[in-house]
Write a protein that binds this DNA or RNA. Sequence first.
DNA 1: GTTGCAGCATTGACATGTCAATTCGGAAGG
DNA 2: CCTTCCGAATTGACATGTCAATGCTGCAAC
Lengths: 163, 163
Amino acid sequence: MAENHRTMPTRDQLRIWRDYIETAQALSTSLGSRLQSESSLSTGDYQVLLALTEAPQHTLRSSELATLIGWERSRLSHHLGRMEKRHLIRRVPCADDVHGVDVTATESGRAAFRAGSVPHLRAVRELFVEALTPEQLAHLDNTSAALRRHLGVDAPVAKERAT
Amino acid sequence: MAENHRTMPTRDQLRIWRDYIETAQALSTSLGSRLQSESSLSTGDYQVLLALTEAPQHTLRSSELATLIGWERSRLSHHLGRMEKRHLIRRVPCADDVHGVDVTATESGRAAFRAGSVPHLRAVRELFVEALTPEQLAHLDNTSAALRRHLGVDAPVAKERAT
DNA sequence: GTTGCAGCATTGACATGTCAATTCGGAAGG
DNA sequence: CCTTCCGAATTGACATGTCAATGCTGCAAC
């Protein structure tokens, strides 16, 4: 009793939260715009092409791809539509499964990925890895894991309850 | 020489990077959807209303507001347009400056902010603060600061060079 | 067999972001 | 006076995300 005012973060905790989230977003934006200018790929394109490039035949079922990169189906569908227009990938109805689509990285998609990959990884190193000491990296690893564990338990996005 | 192959992150560093960025995004999304369902405000709305609520007369010049919350002008303009349609804010041409617009939080905007604020802060505590030990929080604070310092030096978004 | 549900993918409507013009009116230089 | 430039803000075109329908087809219950 008399201590439920502890439901709100302190001023300092709030500052740390904002710094955390803004820093991550700034980094992500910066990496994304570098990638864009160096290869005409967005980070979304990059994730998709990374998964496809590593898959046998450069091909994955749409739903597997969604699971692999952790996207919602509809987001992936929209994105694949845009990528198909730019000839980065191709979609063909899948033979074995009547429903289901095979997504394949085209030659030009794979070329764009190869072109973007090296500068992108270099940028990750320059903007992220080199900013931190090995200890900071290790702490950050722990911290991210703790946050994800907590989030997974606490907020499973309410996608359950299908009965 | 013979060591410039160190321009790329190791497998582990890359994993930490991806975990970091994906965790931050997942948290941000989760907080955002809570806020949305509890107050019909997006995180963007929240940032804008927070700044305005704390300002004298609940009013700020558009450009000051942009600087305060760190948004690009055009982004703010679009967002204010949407918020104005929902009667959360009002825009009036500024008296002293011929160019320039005063942005004011309406009564209903302030009410929405008050309604969203407490649950939002509670969510920050639940999803972020409570997931971490005090040491982890402190480390994270350092780490964010290091990343921002490095980013600021390395990639000032190329907005300089006005002469 | 037909009814209806379940699973995979797409679609449409709309919110949000970025980038490159564009508008607008005052200040400078001629 | 006229041209040019500048700064504040907006606009338009388009990329990206989310949410709630919608198509489509097999399979299971009846």
